[in-house]
Design a protein around this nucleic acid. Structure first.
Length: 576
RNA sequence: CGGGACGUGGCGCAGUUUGGCAGCGCGCAGCGUUCGGGACGCUGAGGUCGCCGGUUCAAAUCCGGCCGUCCCGACCA
């Protein structure tokens, strides 16, 4: 491409309101433009990067035996009603009626459609299958943000494994895990696989691929010593046992006038009510069912864990009025002792504890001497608390680290949920029908692009890894108004294209400073500077964007040197 | 959904408090000089001031409604 005829609208100033670095740089360097909230146009440079990432993904999906499809983004509402997700997905699903009043939606993912196609597989002999597509997804995000990191319309590679049994699913899942490692490595990314929550997808197990970045919206907990790593939504940690008093007198009410918080109670009764000796009682409406949720006083609830534990589709804290109606007291004096008729979930950190303090369900009173096993009717013991940085790793006991990550990929073991409702059955060798065991696997293409920029930039702009760069090299002509440099550069540019190198020719009649600054802003890995001074000695200058180091190269060697550098970088990014 | 802010040439902003010719920087066009690290001079083009309504002799500015965008929170595969 000749820059003088290209649409590369770079900006001298930062766009307004661009919080994430990747957003700021992708706009400034002329890769993307916003159309509406969560809706972005890919300009030619952006489209080239998007295409490169998609192509890497396509190659690696083909490498594990994937077959590419292209499914509609427009779905009849009926198939989502059949899977139950028409109701589960809530407002995030774009819905509308067609002219006949029939419900439709825009696909946010494609389990239903692929499961429907899988009904055409009659026999276990047809399995396993890996099906995928690279296609536009729509999600009516309540709050799109950070440019292309979280949008309402985006490209996703979604793939699906179809197997006879769980062993087959495990194999397909591991194939995907390895393919994802290769894909992200080829994009230059250090993406860490972490244990994750499956959320509304359902299924038994899921793993997210996280790129460390302050712009990330997820928290990851990891252990440097043993390698344990999990999304905070799933993370567990080892707790120091709390020594409780011997013996167990009956619970006893005592006055706590005006005390509404754990901290205030601890301050008023330091000897018996330090936070870890209190029971925190929360009231949630779990799919409209009022539920008591108990945690140690110094612990925080992680709502996703409550969702996972209950299978809820809707969750919200009860209002003060609802709580008063249920328990007869205001928040601040709540407890579960003697409560019947409501489900009680408790965090495992409370298991076996004695001599604790909790609210009495009577304003301005609390209870002491509470013995969890004796006095509380806990229905479900589970992990509900938020792990804090520095807590001991549940596996090895070393301190845990907590960091922000961008979720660039997510792989799920789905099981038979979708195949059952869609009727995707196969016969085994005994002639019995089985629902196909499915897995589902996603990569966000534009989000991956943004994650690369988050990982590779400096004060001058983007620094693309070779594998995803829009061009491998920019040939920068100085004094493009003179025939000598321009002709030499055009010759070199032609040779590079012939050698299969993706080159951009900066033939604009700009001053050198402008050209260098623009090339650095848009982040092309290599630059060849062709100017009158070097040409007098038959030389050009080769500059690496990464560290801005330069070397002189004879003009007639330049094509070969560049081609070798490009090939070497691509090879280095590809695991053996 | 709750809280906050913003909306004025392509981009970034001032002007709104106190109503009175719509401005600045960058970018853009033409000419000239300059040009291996974001040059300069001269000339010029470009704006329904988000939309609708109201007040007023007069509205970017005051009032009401709506729309849009961003940030924080909630929510989220």
């Amino acid at each position: 491409m000749r820059w003088s005829h290209a649409f590369i609208p770079t900006l001298r100033e930062d766009p307004a309101d661009a919080e994430a670095v990747s957003h700021r740089l992708l706009v400034r360097a002329g890769y993307i433009r916003q159309l509406a909230a969560g809706s972005y146009s890919m300009l030619p440079l952006g489209q080239r990067v998007r295409r490169k990432i998609a192509e890497i993904v396509r190659q690696e999906m083909d490498a594990i035996g994937g077959q590419q499809f292209h499914l509609p983004a427009l779905h009849p509402g009926e198939i989502w009603k059949r899977s139950g997700r028409w109701d589960v997905m809530g407002e995030e699903l774009f819905r509308f009626e067609d002219r006949r009043g029939v419900d439709h939606c825009l696909g946010m993912t494609h389990e239903e459609v692929f499961a429907l196609l899988a009904t055409e597989l009659p026999s276990y002999r047809d399995l396993p299958q890996i099906w995928y597509q690279i296609q536009t997804k729509f999600r009516d995000e309540p709050r799109p943000k950070s440019g292309v990191l979280r949008t309402r319309e985006f490209t996703m590679k979604d793939s699906y494994t179809l197997d006879l049994d769980w062993e087959g699913l495990d194999a397909g899942f591991e194939k995907h895990r390895r393919a994802y490692e290769i894909i992200f490595r080829r994009c230059g990314l250090d993406a860490i696989d972490v244990e994750a929550s499956s959320g509304a997808m359902g299924g038994s197990e899921s793993v997210e691929f996280m790129v460390r970045s302050p712009s990330g919206e997820d928290w990851v907990v990891s252990c440097a010593a043993c390698g344990y790593r999990a999304n905070l939504e799933r993370a567990a940690a080892r707790l120091e046992p709390v020594p409780d008093p011997e013996g167990s007198p009956d619970p006893e009410e005592f006055p706590t006038p005006g005390i509404r918080t754990i901290a205030a109670l601890a301050a008023a009764h330091p000897e018996e009510a330090e936070p870890r000796r209190q029971i925190k009682t929360l009231v949630y409406l779990v799919d409209e069912q009022p539920t008591l949720v108990l945690l140690r006083g110094d612990h925080e609830l992680l709502e996703q864990k409550l969702v996972d534990a209950t299978g809820a589709t809707q969750l919200r804290p009860a209002t003060a009025e609802e709580i008063r109606q249920l328990l007869g007291a205001d928040p601040g004096s709540l407890g579960a002792v003697g409560v019947t008729g409501l489900p009680v979930l408790a965090d495992r950190a409370l298991q076996g504890r004695r001599g604790l303090v909790t609210g009495a369900n009577r304003d301005d009173y609390h209870l002491r001497h509470v013995d969890v096993g004796r006095d509380l009717a806990v229905e479900t013991w589970t992990d509900l608390r938020t792990v804090a940085a520095g807590e001991a790793c549940a596996v090895c006991g070393e301190p845990l680290e907590r960091w922000r990550g961008i979720e660039v990929g997510h792989i799920f073991k789905l099981g038979t949920r979708y195949s059952e409702v869609m009727g995707a059955l196969v016969q085994d060798d005994d002639g019995r029908s089985h629902p196909i065991v499915m897995g589902s696997y996603g990569i966000g293409i534009e989000r991956t692009m943004a994650a690369v920029v988050e990982s590779f930039h400096d004060e001058r702009g983007i620094v693309w890894p070779m594998g995803v760069a829009p061009f491998s090299v920019v040939v920068t002509v100085l004094r493009a108004d003179e025939s000598g440099p321009l002709e030499a550069a055009e010759q070199l540019y032609g040779d590079l294209l012939t050698a299969g190198v993706e080159a951009l020719l900066d033939d604009r009649p700009e001053r050198p400073g402008v050209k260098f600054a623009d090339a650095e802003l848009i982040g092309i890995p290599l630059r060849v500077t062709v100017g009158p001074k070097g040409l007098e000695r038959g030389r050009v200058e080769l500059t690496a964007r990464r560290d801005l180091t330069s070397e002189e190269v004879p003009l007639d060697q330049a094509t070969k040197v560049v081609a070798e550098l490009v090939a070497a970088e691509l090879t280095a990014a590809r695991p053996e």
